Simulated assay, not measured.
Amino acid sequence: MTAPLTVVAGSSTHTGRRRALNEDSSLACAPVFVVADGMGGHEAGERASAAVTTAFAALIGREALGLDDVRQALARARGAVDALVTTTSSRAGTTLSGVVISSVDGLGYWLALNIGDSRTYRFAGGELEQITVDHSVIQELIDAGELTAETAMHDTRRNVITRAIGGGSSGDADFWLFPADAGDRMLVCSDGLTAEVPDARIREVLAQERDPQRAAAVLTAEAVEAGGRDNITVIVVDATAVAARPGAVVLSDEVDEATRPREVLNGGAR
């Protein structure tokens, strides 16, 4: 049976210039590509983010995942983080963002998920599209028209999130399901990247660096050079072959890379 989606990926992480610990964790192994940005201090964030990626590691090696698979992994992750809070009396918590390989009737799909302010983007046809929507005070102010994206970059509230796994939050994740095209490049990152490197520069790097590992490393290095005020984690995932119909595979140089409309699940984009 033909795999619905074949990918290659690269990942990179850095503590940054101002933090003693790297509280980010990531998982970049098919069919799961996720980044968790921990919070809580005194190693609580490090443990929380690691607990989340451990919960998703059980899905590695499967050909494709459905929404129920991801929700079950999220439930395991939340239970693991809640157990940390109980045993350490801390406010351990973490964001989670990423994409997993999915399928619909044998066709290749991306299933993106998000809780918090880490992000997942899609780069296709030369355009960079932010798939996820931040769960943050800043995003709410932007949505209300009280801030612009430019002024938000320097707002003192930019680290205040409204949903997390743990950390006293019970907010749910959002999900997006959309068809994959061969040639898609997915970017998953903690806010240590997006707080330092503007989207325009991220798009340039993704366009210029063909190797996903090199692209991830360059973006991480640029975030450090720009200030490195937080931990930085970057995953780049390239779709090299996509099942366009059951039993048929389309290679990356044989398709129109125009972005297709997304189907939004469980609240999705606002």
Rank of each mutant, 00 (worst) to 15 (best):
H135D: 10
G98R: 02
F33Q: 00
M153T: 14
V234I: 03
A152L: 00
A248M: 14
G45R: 01
A75K: 11
G45P: 09
I165L: 14
F175G: 06
G267H: 02
A244S: 15
V99F: 09
I142W: 04
G41T: 06
Q72P: 12
S136P: 10
M153A: 15
T259N: 11
S169T: 07
A28M: 06
A144F: 01
V234M: 06
L27C: 06
D37K: 08
V99G: 04
D184N: 07
L147V: 00
L5K: 00
L251V: 09
T95N: 08
E209W: 12
E225T: 14
G106V: 10
D211G: 02
R62V: 00
I235W: 00
A36P: 14
V249K: 08
V255F: 11
A92L: 03
T220G: 09
R62G: 04
T87G: 13
I131E: 06
D82V: 01
L27V: 03
A226Y: 01
A241I: 05
V52N: 03
R62F: 07
E63N: 10
S190R: 09
P179M: 01
N266F: 13
G40I: 07
A182W: 07
R214G: 05
V85Y: 11
L141C: 03
A55M: 02
N114K: 06
N231C: 03
R91I: 10
G168E: 00
V205H: 05
A30H: 14
I138S: 07
A58T: 15
S170T: 15
V249F: 13
